[in-house]
Amino acid sequence: MQKKWLVIVNPVAGNSASKKKWPLIYNELLLQKFEVEVIFTEFKNHAVKIVQTSIKQGFTKFICVGGDGTLHSIVNGILSLNPINISEIKIGIIAIGTGNDWIKTYYISKDYKKAIQIIKDGNTIKQDIGKITIAKNNETVYFNNLAGIGFDGYVVNKVHKFKNLGFLAYLTGAIVSLTSYKKATLEITFNNTIIKEKTLMLLIGLCKYSGGGMQLTKNSDPTDGLFDISIIYKIHLFNILGNLSGLFNGNITNHKLVNTYKTAELKIKVLDTIKTYIQADGELVGSDDFSVSILPKAISFIVPK
């Protein structure tokens, strides 16, 4: 078995903060006696190919140096390969991104020295993973944090313009987008329930945080074998501005405009001609009809004790 850690560095993560901090991170890894092989990503989703090649070479220990998008690619690289030794594979993260949402659920520090110490301690948790199947092309996409369709996908499509604002990028994108977004009629099927409504957005959560620290799903537990879904049919700009604290402390999920449920699978049909974006972990992954199912405790992540 390969003893080395494969370190996957996204040099453009966090407005290229990853590239600037990498020499310090590398020195700390060596100081902490890590045996590492390092690969820099060169294009979007390059980490998918890197991971698949590395697993075939015997690597089972991965360190992600980047943001939520880089971690998303690593997860997709593992699960799309579906290796027979998946139970031996584990992922640690040194978070340098815009939102850094996934780490917030587990209280992983953004301080690279503390993050490296967590990886060295080696405590793991087996987390549920979401599996999206997009009907149009039968494409499969996995997510480890949160997915959605509608307004949040629309915002993700806009957010790149505001990346320099850091965690406020998502909130800024949402406020700017709210007046221009046109709601689509969705048919949402889950737990023997069918909902057909003009819908602002549907959120499908595993972990607690998204959009730069917002808590938009209720009672999230990434190991309970269930998605926490929020359906919002309509919301106005004054509702958002009047509930800013609720977006970040989770109280927004108690608002009368937010409907919350738990389910292990669901199907979504878009009943309009409006192009409706799907996002997974803050990455645009497609549009139109799709289904989602849960893979219980599918991947081991290194988290604090």
Results as ranks from 00 to 15, higher is better:
Ile50Tyr: 05
Gln52Asn: 10
Gln52Met: 13
Ile55Pro: 00
Lys56Ile: 14
Phe59Cys: 05
Phe59Ala: 05
Phe62Pro: 05
Asp68Trp: 05
Asp68His: 06
Val75Leu: 14
Asn76Glu: 06
Gly77Cys: 08
Leu79Asp: 01
Ser80Arg: 11
Leu81His: 03
Leu81Asn: 09
Leu81Arg: 08
Asn82Asp: 15
Ile86Pro: 00
Glu88Val: 07
Ile89Gly: 04
Lys90Leu: 12
Lys90Ser: 14
Gly92Val: 02
Ile93Arg: 01
Gly97Met: 12
Gly99Ser: 06
Lys104Trp: 07
Ile108Thr: 10
Ser109Glu: 07
Asp111Pro: 00
Lys113Pro: 00
Ile116Trp: 08
Ile118Lys: 00
Ile119Lys: 04
Ile119Trp: 13
Ile119Gly: 05
Asn123Val: 10
Asp128Met: 09
Asp128Val: 09
Ile129Thr: 09
Lys131Val: 10
Asn138Trp: 03
Glu139Asp: 10
Thr140Phe: 02
Val141Phe: 01
Tyr142Phe: 15
Tyr142Glu: 09
Phe143Gln: 07
Leu146Pro: 00
Ala147Tyr: 02
Ala147Glu: 08
Ala147Ser: 15
Ala147Cys: 14
Ala147Phe: 06
Gly150Gln: 11
Val155Tyr: 06
Asn157Val: 03
Val159Ile: 15
Leu165Lys: 11
Gly166Asn: 09
Phe167His: 13
Tyr170His: 07
Thr172Cys: 06
Gly173His: 12
Ile175Arg: 06
Val176Ile: 15
Val176Gln: 11
Ser180His: 12
Lys183Gln: 15
Lys183Ser: 14
Lys183Asp: 15
Ala184Phe: 08
Thr185Leu: 09
